[in-house]
Design a protein around this nucleic acid. Structure first.
Length: 270
DNA sequence: AAGCCTTTCAACCGCGCGTCG
DNA sequence: ACGACGCGCGGTTGAAAGGCT
């Protein structure tokens, strides 16, 4: 017997979410918390798959999300974490407060990957690219958009920045110790405890994750005017109404979400 | 101005894993 | 031990926006 579909395909809406659907989902979760996603659409009055609801919430509607482009520090961190973890985007996202795996994955594929290739670094292995592998690492479109991006010296293992490095300032200072750049990232991941970089040691520590949770909400509080996208985004402008939420609503939502110590943090939202 | 091409990113799909009865 | 179920993850798709000719 085959696997049961995650939702009844008939009558389930697909495609972009409307403001009304967003509103229903947010209202439901803030009132009831994140519970069984399979039942959320029915209880929230949505003609959506539970999976779709979860994705919409985690990738777009969650109030603790940061908005806007990733900054240089975040990019560096992603590159470093990718060198250790590979394409385990959720693990990487867990180390970047307010960022989602989907967002990081997209950013990697559209920005960072190209930057690394432009720098002559294989985005998969994080090793210097050889001339022939540069072409295989790039799609035909990427090749055409970077026709002269292949430094000649990479076959020697020497990294040579392009003469015009104005486009790579965000990652121009990062470097990987040789032991971090070889082989399968999972099996050969270095011992975090031995990491020389204090920042990375901290990021790899359990304490980081504890702090990250706090940062999520602190960041959301500081940037609460951003989490609903720009005010020009008519489709989501209503999200700004989050700021109008009362203590009671927020407290309930947080307690249902099993977040710790949010009574204090929650005040930053409001 | 119009059509085509490229880029971006929200959303979907299928699979694997953990949990529970 | 086994199967059903729900969730989360990573890869992929496709619509929209922006850029180019």
């Amino acid at each position: 017997m085959g696997r049961q579909p995650c939702c009844d395909k008939l009558g389930v809406k697909k495609g972009p979410w409307t403001a009304e659907e967003d509103r229903k989902l947010v209202n439901f979760i803030l009132t009831n918390g994140q519970c069984c996603w399979r039942t959320v659409p029915k209880l929230a009055g949505l003609r959506r798959c539970g999976k779709s609801c979860r994705l919409r919430w985690t990738n777009y509607l969650r109030p603790d999300l940061k908005r806007g482009l990733l900054n240089e520090e975040e990019e560096k961190l992603i590159i470093d974490l990718h060198a250790r973890l590979g394409n385990r985007w959720s693990k990487i996202a867990a180390r970047l407060p307010g960022r989602t795996d989907n967002e990081i994955k997209n950013h990697w594929n559209t920005h960072i990957k190209k930057k690394l290739i432009k720098m002559g670094i294989d985005p998969v292995t994080h090793e210097p690219l050889h001339q022939q592998s540069i072409s295989s690492a790039l799609t035909p479109q990427e090749m055409s958009s970077h026709p002269t991006d292949c430094p000649q010296s990479h076959a020697t293992g020497q990294q040579e920045l392009p003469e015009d490095d104005s486009n790579i300032t965000s990652i121009d200072n990062f470097s990987f110790p040789p032991e971090k750049m070889s082989g399968d990232d999972q099996s050969q991941a270095p011992d975090p405890q031995n990491d020389d970089d204090p920042l990375m040691s901290y990021i790899w520590s359990d304490a980081f994750l504890d702090d990250a949770l706090m940062w999520n909400f602190a960041a959301a509080g500081e940037e609460c005017s951003e989490f609903g996208l720009s005010s020009s985004d008519d489709n989501s402008a209503w999200l700004l109404d989050y700021q109008e939420l009362g203590d009671e609503d927020f407290g309930l939502a947080c307690s249902n979400m099993n977040m710790n110590s949010l009574d204090d943090i929650g005040g930053k939202y409001i």
